[in-house]
Amino acid sequence: MKIEVALRETHDAETDLAAELLRVGERHKADHDVYHLTRTLSGWSDRHVHRLAEQAERYELDLDADAVEEEQDRGVLARVREKGSELLGQRPEPGLLLLRDLRELHLAAARASLAWTVLGQGAQAVSDPELLETVTACHPETIRTMKWTVQKIKEASPQVLAS
């Protein structure tokens, strides 16, 4: 069985997504909705990572439940960025930066979503209802994160490009 591969890929993709959400939020603190919502959504992905680590135990696979936290600790520049964003926030250029960051976030969310799709198919193929339940509970949240990035790009781009 290669279900462990799919577990690991989903775990890693969700860890990346959680960390990327926090990074983008810190960088755009003056865009208050982005700042606050990325923290909420990162919390979802963090919860997904914990649930995946739990599931992995049944396959004797060691996935780090606290991966998001550790990823954050590695982001030593995060606080610096956060301060910097308050100053940056008053010049028009951050608009373009926001669009770029939202695009990256979207791709990270899409990667995670695809990983869930694969894992969900695998869970059905190996008849693991517990794993399938995890997928069913978590995957919709990742899709919501992905949809939010699209919505935010739609909202933000006209003003960035027309001004």
């Binding site: 003056a30 865009d31 926030g89 008053q90 028009p92 608009g95 739609k154 006209p158 960035v160 001004s163």
Partner: peptide, 21 residues
């Protein structure tokens, strides 16, 4: 008639003013 995105809400209007757009 602009309808490419939801009409801009007040807090975002002030944000755009803050950014200078």
């Amino acid at each position: 008639i602009p309808h490419y995105a939801p009409p801009t809400h007040a807090m975002q209007i002030f944000r755009y003013a803050e950014q200078g757009s």
